[in-house]
């Protein structure tokens, strides 16, 4: 069955390009809406499987508001688009309930990759707790025995380092905000201590033998927002 994707953007050329671009992959039915109001109606009537939602929508409710309103009754995955590469905008999008965001201009491949990541995550989510292991690149995480291997060699992590890695790795492709990471790994009272996360990620990167110069990376930095685990599986 084809995946139904709703593209919401007030710019006709962008709607057209996304329709052509995503349509070209063959697996998608692309619907479009040009305003927030129209978007909400379309979601209610056609229940799409995923929404690509621009933040600025001309007159009427903007993308953030549409996202908040949809979240009152729908769990449909939402990817927000914006021309603003500001941290505040990204955090606002995630806080409004978006699953991911992309900054314009972007390549259609990147959008496609994000869609696949989200759909894969949704497919495995109900079973997340029963997953026994995660394997990506040269990294292998044995969730049952709390053991981690890089290049088939066991890596020794402290309990906090392991918790951090597990949190990120069990949400592949999803941006985990600093706040969420602190709250999950350290506890809600650590809400403002973003730099703890940064120090730990630094150590973790070294232990996992990341080599960014050869693109060997497992944890992506989303500046000012959080971190995202990349998984090829």
């Amino acid at each position: 069955m084809k995946l139904k994707i709703l593209v919401v953007d007030d710019e006709p050329q962008i709607r057209k390009q996304l329709k052509i671009g995503l349509g070209g992959y063959g697996g998608y039915d692309v619907l479009t809406a040009e305003s927030g109001q129209q978007a909400i109606i379309t979601v209610a009537q056609s229940s799409p499987d995923l929404i690509i939602l621009d933040i600025s929508l001309g007159a009427g409710p903007d993308g953030l508001e549409v996202c908040q309103r949809l979240r009152e009754w729908s769990k449909v995955p939402i990817i927000m688009l914006s021309v603003h590469n500001e941290e505040k905008t990204k955090v606002a999008a995630l806080m409004a309930g978006a699953d991911d965001y992309l900054t314009k201009p972007f390549g259609i491949e990147e959008l496609h990759a994000r869609i696949i990541a989200i759909m894969r995550r949704i497919a495995v989510e109900p079973a997340t707790n029963t997953r026994a292991e995660i394997r990506t690149g040269a990294l292998f995480i044995d969730l049952v025995n709390r053991r981690v291997f890089a290049d088939d060699e066991e890596i020794h992590l402290t309990p906090k380092e392991y918790d951090l890695l597990r949190l990120l790795a069990t949400h592949p492709g999803k941006v985990m905000t600093h706040r969420a990471i602190l709250s999950e790994v350290w506890g809600p009272e650590y809400g403002e201590m973003d730099h703890y996360v940064r120090v730990f990620i630094n150590t973790l990167r070294k232990k996992l033998r990341e080599n960014p110069a050869r693109n060997v990376r497992y944890i992506l930095n989303e500046p000012g927002v959080g971190y995202r685990f990349i998984s090829d599986a």
Binding site: K88, H195, P212, N221, G224
Partner: peptide, 21 residues
Amino acid sequence: LSVGLNSLEEVAGDVAARVWQ
């Protein structure tokens, strides 16, 4: 400026990854 305590090594990593790509 929206400053926070950040890691310069992370900056180096991001730049290196982009160059690889």
